[in-house]
């Protein structure tokens, strides 16, 4: 416990706010009727997650989260919604057995199981650390230990770009106009 009106106390308050943002965003993202709102919820959720990363001593990843998820992924999804959302008819809830209560209870079950697991496990903190986890260290390990994965990721991204282009461009010409 820390006093409320101290730096730690304030940061704790802000933390609560961030958690609420995250969860609220996630709920909007899964529960709103309109896809565009779902994306907004997703963006809010990601902003919250970025805040969590900041609390986890990694401002770099927090900013990357903003840059990639909010700035790139969400924008892409909004574009997809624009291009391929013909009917504003109800998005959730329909005849399948998995919808409604069942999926909800499944989600609850998962959440309960995971958090119970988290609570039951005796987590053993490591005795000492190899490095301080700073930005420099992340960079170093990216280019030493994980350089293979790093290169692979860039390859995956390149392939994704090409694949996305190939997939999205097909069928475009017949409507005319595209040059």
């Amino acid at each position: 416990m820390v006093p409320l009106f101290s730096a730690e106390g304030l940061s704790s308050l802000v933390f609560i706010f961030i958690v609420i943002t995250t969860v609220l965003g996630a709920v909007i993202a899964t529960h709103s009727e309109r896809l565009i709102r779902a994306v907004t919820g997703l963006a809010i959720c990601f902003i919250g997650v970025a805040g969590l990363y900041y609390y986890l001593n990694s401002p770099f990843l927090a900013l990357m989260e903003m840059l990639i998820y909010v700035g790139a992924v969400c924008v892409t999804i909004v574009f997809a919604v624009m291009l391929a959302d013909p009917n504003p008819k109800s998005e959730v809830g329909k005849g399948s057995i998995f919808t409604g209560p069942l999926s909800f209870s499944l989600g609850i079950l998962l959440f309960w199981g995971l958090s119970a697991l988290a609570g039951k496990t005796a987590w053993i903190p490591s005795s000492g650390t190899i490095n301080d986890g700073s930005l420099e260290e992340v960079g170093r390990s990216l280019l030493t230990n994980y350089s293979m994965a790093f290169e692979l990721i860039s390859l995956v991204l390149l392939l994704a770009i090409i694949g996305a282009l190939v997939l999205a461009r097909r069928g475009r010409t017949q409507t005319g106009g595209e040059s």
Partner: peptide, 19 residues
């Protein structure tokens, strides 16, 4: 876990690919 649960719920619950 909460995010995971909500995500899973959404995955099953949503009708459209984007959702």
């Amino acid at each position: 876990a909460l995010l995971f649960g909500i995500g899973f719920y959404g995955l099953v619950h949503r009708r459209t690919f984007i959702g």
